[in-house]
C-alpha cells in the first residue's frame, strides 16, 4: 500500500520519528535528563529499523529488489541503524537535559533517510 507515492515503512517511520521527537523536545523543555520516555522512544526507532532491515532482505529475495543501486540502499539502511544506537549511547553517558535534545535529533534524521531509501527502492 502506497500513500503519496511512499510505502508504509516510510509512513510508520514518520509517525514513530515524530512521536519520538515530540517526547524528547517536551522532556527537554521540562529540563529532564534522558529518561525512560525519551530513551524508550529511541529504542522503538531502533527496533523499527531492525524490522525494516529484515523486511528489506526478505523483499530483496522475493522481488527484484530496489530499482536504484542496492549498495546505496543498504548503505543508507546500515548508516540509519547506527544513528539511534549512537544517540542512545550518548544519552547513557551524559545525564543532562541536553542529552534529551540529542535524542530528539534521531527522529528527523531517520525520516529523511527512510524517505531516501523509499526513493531508491521504488524509483531510481
Amino acid at each position: 500500500m502506497m500513500i503519496a507515492g511512499l510505502d508504509l515503512w516510510f509512513w510508520i517511520c514518520v509517525v514513530l520519528g515524530t512521536v519520538s521527537t515530540v517526547i524528547c523536545v517536551i522532556q527537554f523543555l521540562r529540563g529532564v535528563a534522558a529518561d525512560d520516555w525519551s530513551q524508550g522512544s529511541i529504542i522503538v526507532l531502533q527496533g523499527f529499523l531492525m524490522v525494516y532491515f529484515v523486511g528489506s532482505i526478505i523483499m530483496q529475495l522475493v522481488t527484484d529488489g530496489p530499482k536504484g543501486d542496492w549498495l546505496e540502499y543498504y548503505g543508507y539502511l546500515l548508516t540509519a541503524m547506527i544513528i539511534p544506537a549512537g544517540t542512545l549511547t550518548w544519552s547513557l553517558s551524559e545525564r543532562t537535559k541536553w542529552s534529551t535534545l540529542v535524542l530528539g535529533v534521531t527522529g528527523p534524521v531517520l525520516i529523511i533517510m527512510v524517505l531516501r531509501m523509499n526513493q531508491l527502492w521504488y524509483y531510481y
Partner: peptide, 12 residues
Amino acid sequence: RLLVVIYAVFSL
C-alpha cells in the same frame, strides 16, 4: 552537545 551530535550525524 547538540552541535557535536549534528556534526557527528553529518560526518557519518
